[in-house]
Design a protein around this nucleic acid. Structure first.
Length: 222
DNA sequence: CTAATGATGCACT
DNA sequence: GTGCATCATTAGC
C-alpha cells in the first residue's frame, strides 16, 4: 500500500518548483491550476484558463523594465509565489503571480479564470452585476476576475503557498495534456519589439478566455 | 466607440 | 514638492 494514494492530490498547494521558474516558463504551467479565494462569505474555487508572462528586467512590457524598482513594483522582485496586485485605469485591479528568484522581477498576469462548480459561479456572479451573465463577462479579463473573486490591493504582497492565505494556488490539472494556444499579449503597444512576442497562453476550448486570437497557434512544450 | 477614475512615474521647479 | 501624461481595462452606448 502506498501512502501517497490517499493524499488529496488535487488540493495540494503548488510548491517552489513552479514559482522559481522564469515567468515565460511558468505562464503555460499555471493553466489548469486552481485558484482558491477565501473570504468571510465563503470559499470560491476556479481554474486558470489564460495567462501572460511579464519579465524580467529586459521586457519592455513589464512594470519592472530596466530593473525599475518602486513602491509599486517592489513585490515583483520578491521570491516566486508572492502575489502582485496593481490598480489600472483608476478602477480595476489586476492579479499577478510573482515567479523566479528574489531580486529578479518576473510575474505572470492572470487574465481569465473559470468557476469550478455552479456554487462557485453563483458567488462570482453575485459580485459582478449584469455583465457577469456570460462566461466572458463573468471572469474573462484581468479586471473582471478580480471583481468576481473580491481581489484588491489588500492581497498585494501575500503568498499563494500558505494554507492560511486568503488566496491560494492548488495543483488542479496538470497542464501538459491541455490544449494550449499561444498568442501576443493584449494591449501593450508601448512594449515596442516585445509587443508581438507570443507570451500569452490560454486554453483553446474555454469560453472564459478574454480575447481569442485569430491564429490560435498551438503551444508546443519544449 | 469612448468615458470613467485615480495611482503612478517622471520631468521639472 | 507640483504638474501632468499615461495606463497589462471595462461597461454601456
Amino acid at each position: 500500500m502506498n501512502h501517497n494514494e490517499n493524499k488529496p492530490v488535487k488540493k495540494q498547494l503548488i510548491g517552489s518548483e513552479l514559482y522559481s521558474l522564469p515567468a515565460l516558463q511558468a505562464a503555460p504551467l499555471l493553466l489548469g491550476r486552481h485558484l482558491v479565494r477565501s473570504t468571510e462569505d465563503g470559499e470560491i474555487r476556479c481554474r486558470i484558463v489564460e495567462t501572460e508572462s511579464y519579465g524580467g528586467a529586459e521586457d519592455k512590457g513589464s512594470h519592472a523594465f530596466g530593473g525599475r524598482r518602486t513602491a509599486r513594483t517592489d513585490v515583483m522582485f520578491r521570491e516566486g509565489g508572492t502575489i502582485y496586485i496593481y490598480l489600472i485605469y483608476g478602477m480595476y485591479h489586476c492579479l499577478n503571480i510573482v515567479t523566479a528568484g528574489e531580486g529578479d522581477p518576473h510575474a505572470v498576469l492572470i487574465r481569465a479564470v473559470e468557476p469550478l462548480t455552479a456554487a462557485d459561479a453563483g458567488f462570482m456572479r453575485s459580485y459582478r452585476g449584469t455583465a457577469g451573465s456570460t462566461p466572458r463577462g463573468l471572469s474573462g479579463g484581468p479586471g473582471k476576475l478580480c471583481r468576481a473573486l473580491q481581489i484588491d490591493k489588500r492581497l498585494n504582497g501575500l503568498r499563494l503557498d500558505r494554507a492560511d492565505s486568503p488566496l491560494r494556488l492548488e495543483q488542479g490539472e496538470e497542464p501538459e495534456s491541455l490544449d494550449i494556444v499561444q498568442s501576443p499579449r493584449i494591449n501593450i503597444p508601448y512594449a515596442e519589439e516585445y509587443a508581438p512576442l507570443p507570451w500569452r497562453f490560454y486554453l483553446r476550448n474555454s469560453p472564459y478566455v478574454s480575447v481569442k486570437d485569430k491564429m490560435e497557434q498551438p503551444f508546443i512544450w519544449s
